[in-house]
């Protein structure tokens, strides 16, 4: 990876692929702080997301590449595993109940499925109307999704990798200080060809990114046998 021209800090940890480490690197890109990213991940390939600066929420949506009406369903995903948080082995299910991706590696406990994406609109409720002109994840999702023909109808409850949302006994919930750190990773194997859309959260009113948006690194790798056959 060539990091020339990329904003960096001495405490960043750029990491490396979490699985398929001897396989073929299909893609290795940086998502700038506050920016968006998308790519097709082929069946069998694995996407590693590196939390370069630590506690940077990677807002994440995934669709079947062949039919984007088939998309991540938080309800089916957490109902099937009977747990609200994602840990290694979690299978991201679609609205039809079939597998989209599997979490094959995870270095942060309790990955969030609850908090959804920040938006200018919800910022008006959470922090006041003075925050409405701040950039937000929903803007990123809409802009990035538009490149693939997706619009507001296609935005559903998303995953927030590296974000921490506890639910207390009385139902109180909220985004609190993160459990991640520089260089922490998740790795997701595609169970079919999928479209992944990510917002590198720009929110500046809560600790979802430690009040300091930092880059994400996205690495897609193929298993070893594909590299051999290539």
């Amino acid at each position: 990876m060539n990091f020339a021209g990329t904003a960096t800090a001495d405490w960043f940890d750029w990491g490396a692929a979490l699985v398929n480490t001897v396989g073929q690197t299909v893609l290795d890109e940086i998502v700038a702080p506050r920016g968006s990213w998308s790519a097709i991940v082929r069946q069998g390939d694995t996407l590693t997301i590196v939390d370069v600066g630590g506690n940077q929420s990677a807002d994440f949506l995934v669709y079947a590449a062949a039919d984007t009406a088939v998309r991540y369903s938080v309800q089916h995903t957490i109902a099937a595993q009977r747990n609200a948080y994602l840990r290694t082995g979690a299978v991201l299910l679609s609205n039809a109940g079939g597998p989209l991706m599997t979490l094959v590696g995870n270095e942060v406990d309790r990955q969030d499925t609850i908090g959804g994406a920040c938006s200018k609109e919800s910022n008006s409720l959470r922090y006041g109307h003075h925050t409405v002109h701040e950039h937000a994840c929903r803007e990123n999702f809409l802009a990035e999704g538009a490149r693939w023909g997706l619009g507001a109808r296609d935005l559903v409850s998303n995953i927030n990798w590296f974000m921490n949302v506890p639910v207390e006994t009385d139902g109180s919930l909220g985004i609190v200080d993160g459990l991640s750190a520089p260089g922490k990773r998740v790795a997701l194997r595609a169970e079919r060809d999928v479209l992944v859309v990510v917002s590198n959260c720009p929110q500046m009113n809560n600790p979802c990114n430690d009040f300091n948006p930092t880059p994400l690194r996205m690495i897609v790798t193929s298993p070893e046998f594909e590299a051999v056959s290539a």
Partner: peptide, 18 residues
């Protein structure tokens, strides 16, 4: 109808899951 129920915001904005 592009404006529709958002369960995540319904829980998060009011700090309450139930």
């Amino acid at each position: 109808p592009r404006e529709r129920l958002n369960v995540a915001d319904t829980q998060k904005v009011f700090w309450q899951a139930y």
